[in-house]
């Protein structure tokens, strides 16, 4: 259990057949920081997120999440193939069998990491409130009997869930749209709802994939404020992917730059701004275009 770093990514490799999306990516995220993952299109940023959250099984490397007072190996909870030594030790065998049968990306979320998606994934035909209620599934009273009989403890748990729903709707300024369908909301509102939904799972670290994409400047500013609220009032570590350099430089404590599946620079905003490799990567993408970081 590392107190300083909430997330450690070591030598992460991800290949899709012949495509080497990630080559040896290594970085650490400090607890309580706002960090950014940047890079040109196709650099592999979303792929890193998908590996972190368990949607892709990394080809190689290690991801360690230190949250909820324990260390979780993201690679392990996804279910690894059996190894010869497992057949000698029943304990190791059953643990591996358990993860193989019941493991998966949901365990990563339960270990304290939640995320949003680059292409918004809301439950479109459910109401805004229901979207946030689903996110609290693991905290709800899930006993069938209690629910069918509508017992006191069930009602209490539902009331608490609704309290949390309206708290988060307040934070993302969606109380007026509480009873609308998620699919009917505007793009900016959907982005905010997705963040609220991710926060409802009570994570220690939240990964936002391009949260400001498609937002206008004032909405981006509101988003920046909101991300600060997440960190300062809820002690949530934030890791975000973003192309809006103004916003990235504004809120990040730490920046990791990816290009062609490799980390080309890491450091504070000032270091990154003046890093020749980073400028080259962004310049190289579109030759002759002026790039200011």
């Amino acid at each position: 259990m590392s107190l300083e770093h909430i997330l450690k990514v070591e030598n992460l490799v991800m290949h899709f057949g012949g495509i080497k999306a990630l080559n040896d990516v290594t970085f650490n995220i400090k607890r309580g920081s706002v960090s950014a993952l940047i890079g040109p299109n196709g650099a592999g940023k979303t792929t890193v997120f998908n590996c972190l959250t368990g949607f892709y099984k990394a080809t190689g490397g290690d991801i360690t999440l230190s949250a909820q007072n324990k260390e979780t190996s993201v690679i392990k909870v996804l279910g690894e193939p059996f190894q010869a030594t497992d057949f000698l030790s029943p304990f190791a065998f059953f643990r591996r069998l358990k993860y193989k049968m019941f493991g998966g990306s949901h365990l990563v979320n339960r270990a304290g990491l939640s995320r949003t998606f680059q292409n918004i994934r809301l439950f479109k035909e459910m109401s805004v409130v229901e979207n946030l209620l689903v996110a609290q599934h693991m905290r709800a009273n899930r006993s069938m009997l209690a629910g069918v009989l509508n017992t006191k403890s069930y009602q209490k748990s539902e009331e608490e869930a609704l309290d949390r729903v309206f708290y988060w709707l307040g934070v993302v300024d969606l109380v007026d749209s509480a009873n609308r369908l998620a699919g009917e909301l505007s793009y900016g509102q959907q982005r905010r709802l997705e963040i609220a939904r991710a926060m409802c799972t009570n994570p220690e670290i939240i990964c936002l994939d391009e949260p400001a994409a498609g937002l206008n400047p004032s909405e981006t500013e509101a988003l920046t404020k909101m991300i600060r609220v997440l960190r300062d009032e809820h002690n949530t570590t934030v890791l975000l992917i973003e192309h809006d350099m103004g916003m990235v430089m504004d809120i990040s404590d730490y920046i990791v730059v990816l290009d062609h599946g490799e980390v080309i620079a890491k450091g504070g905003p000032e270091d990154i701004r003046s890093n020749p490799k980073v400028i080259a990567a962004y310049l190289g993408a579109e030759e002759g275009e002026e790039v200011t970081l």
């Binding site: 979320n109 996110a135 799972t201």
Partner: peptide, 8 residues
């Protein structure tokens, strides 16, 4: 996919 990302 969204469900899995929420711990279900």
């Amino acid at each position: 996919i969204a469900c899995r990302s929420l711990g279900l």
